[in-house]
Design a protein around this nucleic acid. Structure first.
Lengths: 208, 208
DNA sequence: CAAGTTTTCGACCCGCCGGTCAACAACTGT
DNA sequence: ACAGTTGTTGACCGGCGGGTCGAAAACTTG
């Protein structure tokens, strides 16, 4: 008599589940919004059943909070480096490439949509995002611009205005690039071309 | 015996109802999203009961469609004027002021949020928006920039890239200005100051 | 391999909300 | 003043989906 070791119908992988669930949640929340997302859909996209989701997260709202909090935190890592050496223009260009790279990942759209559309339900997360992301990035650019101004590398501009300008250009172009069916202006442009456009316009207006 | 004409408990105003309902719907949809908005809430905000909403609109989705369609259509009127006389710089500045004025109304946020977050449920509206708004505005700016370039008023730039730049700046700054608790960068700036920033940056990078 | 542990499943419960409808109140015409 | 019309109401229904829970399957330990 041969004992047949069939493959188990499913495996226990408690280490990986939370991450898988959060990844699926980002997709579904990003497409359907907080209210429109169904837990069944998140579970299915993660290859699980609903009960398992509730085994790791106590409810929809907590899952949402955890997701946003993690995304926002991870989004900052590496984006805002300690002040480095070199001309401000170079530092700004590496910063631009770094931010652009992150913004062109599929997760960025979902996250931005959630921040814009759902974050007001969570005042603490609103404050967290405003402080950790929105405020910091502009301030960081402003600091770099200011260095360039005092070094005579750029003309005298309001550093914070320049920071807003750059962040606005990057954000909006990333949004457009991710939804070509909705924003046809950028159709046919590669990421590098778009980046070159932004670079050209931004630094041109900083020149003396 | 005196006949007392008490004021009626409610009045029949069939002409005004659709508009009132749509206005309330814009607010509630804007705050809660398509799935999160409750018809009761829309009715209450319009000072009506749920049944009346269903008297004028056959259902939630149709109400949403009607709302977006009307908003998008009204949003274009006057924004894109026929080609007028004068230097391109002047035409661009009046265009900028016009667009900025519309974008700084409270309805713009709600609408933009809905376009970004919900419009993918309605492919026909997606196409409609892409064609009527997103495409046209950038093309319009590009046309004006091109005039300025051939007239020697601006340096030689890619007109469409310039169009994207301007629209990106206006859109993001309007978004920020409407949510200061989420985007603290622009705190304390008046609309005119923001507009001056955009103007300065944009035209500076068009100069020879 | 047996007993114990923990992950996973899926059937079930129940409150909420989109949608319905009959009654009613505000109008209109005569 | 009365009948007819229709805008408006609010109680009601049914399905959907968030959340629960017992049982079964996958591991672990000895």
């Amino acid at each position: 008599m041969t004992t047949i070791h069939t493959a188990p119908r499913w495996r226990r992988r408690p280490e990986d589940r939370p991450g898988e669930i959060l990844a699926a949640a980002l997709e579904v929340f990003g497409e359907q919004g907080l209210a429109g997302a169904r837990i069944d859909a998140i579970a299915a996209r993660a290859g699980l059943s609903k009960g398992t989701v509730y085994h790791y997260f106590p409810g929809k709202e907590v899952l949402f909070r955890e997701l946003v909090r993690r995304m926002v935190r991870d989004g900052t890592v590496g984006i805002v480096p300690a002040d480095a050496e070199g001309p401000a223009g170079e530092l700004l260009r590496t910063f631009i490439r770094g931010v652009w790279g992150r913004m062109r990942t599929p997760g960025f759209h979902a996250l931005y949509r959630l921040i814009l559309g759902e974050l007001h339900h969570f005042p603490d997360l609103t404050r967290f995002y405003a402080d950790e992301i929105a405020g910091r990035t502009v301030s960081h650019v402003a600091a770099l611009v200011e260095r360039g101004v005092t070094a005579g590398e750029f003309r005298r501009v309001d550093p914070r205005a320049a920071g807003r300008t750059l962040v606005a250009l990057l954000t909006q172009h990333a949004l457009w690039a991710g939804r070509p069916e909705l924003f046809p202006h950028a159709a046919g442009r590669t990421d590098d071309e778009v980046l070159a456009e932004i670079d050209e316009f931004f630094f041109r207006s900083l020149g003396p």
